[in-house]
Design a protein around this nucleic acid. Sequence first.
DNA 1: TATTGTTATACTCTATAACTATA
DNA 2: TATAGTTATAGAGTATAACAATA
Lengths: 160, 160
Amino acid sequence: MTSRSNRSATKAQPRGKMRGGKLVLGELDQHLGYFLRRLQLWVFHDFIETLKPMRVRPAQYSVLLLVEANPGRSQAAIGQALGIERARLARMLHDLERRKWIARHTNGSDARSHSVYLTAGGKKALVKIKRLAEKHEARLSAFLVPQRHRQLLSWLRKSS
Amino acid sequence: MTSRSNRSATKAQPRGKMRGGKLVLGELDQHLGYFLRRLQLWVFHDFIETLKPMRVRPAQYSVLLLVEANPGRSQAAIGQALGIERARLARMLHDLERRKWIARHTNGSDARSHSVYLTAGGKKALVKIKRLAEKHEARLSAFLVPQRHRQLLSWLRKSS
DNA sequence: TATTGTTATACTCTATAACTATA
DNA sequence: TATAGTTATAGAGTATAACAATA
């Protein structure tokens, strides 16, 4: 996160020296998507750095939490819930399986679908992972004022 | 954007049939970053689709607006303001130059730096681009309640 | 030495299509 | 024929490093 000083700079530039000062955002200042993206990048960057000891990336983390909360569900169900494309999820699960954190069993009722579970090792790792994730979330809460953090979370949650 | 029904599902799963219903988010429900990412993906997807007639992507759009508001500034200044890495910006500007939307002149005072400007064609294109971007922003405003949209923008702006 | 811009490489994420095996 | 999962490919975004020209 960088620039901090930008008011309603829709058209004019600040007077004064041309070469030198800070840039103005211009109409970018009116675009929610821009700020949303900047904040999201900051959050992911901090998450990745904080979770680096466990080498877990945000998408992997979301899969682990979802499998924990919904053991035995199919890849299709997981992918749909998280908005992860099935091709991408297949490779992610392959990687998580290689690390012995999740296991896939063919479901009895439908031989096509795989039921996904956390392994014992996966559950153990997830404890450590969550501890790091909490540190990240605390940093994010400090970054946004707590009351803003709650309100923002509530709004974003409703929008999903 | 998919799931809509998730309360405080931190640990337990809903009782009832195991295979079938919607998945619960579990602890993911407590992570601002998750909702932030989902919303950001939605916003970018809508932006890209809306701007498809002009084939402009979000990062390109941000560069065009910034150059419009700050004509003649260096690539280094632009990249720093937008948080775009100089190597990436060099390729982006190369592309925008190829499309005859921006021009680069070597600055008299420092032969290393390039001053970036919109061309006449770039300004003309930007009019059309902004018209499409407004449609996107209107859709985003409708998606979030207007008052939420304003408050959210204000918060995110302060966080940048 | 440090900075500006460039090229090149690698990795992640996203979007497709093609394929298999089941249903 | 449709679905679940897999593999492969291509594009964009990000992160580096190495380089040339200039300061």
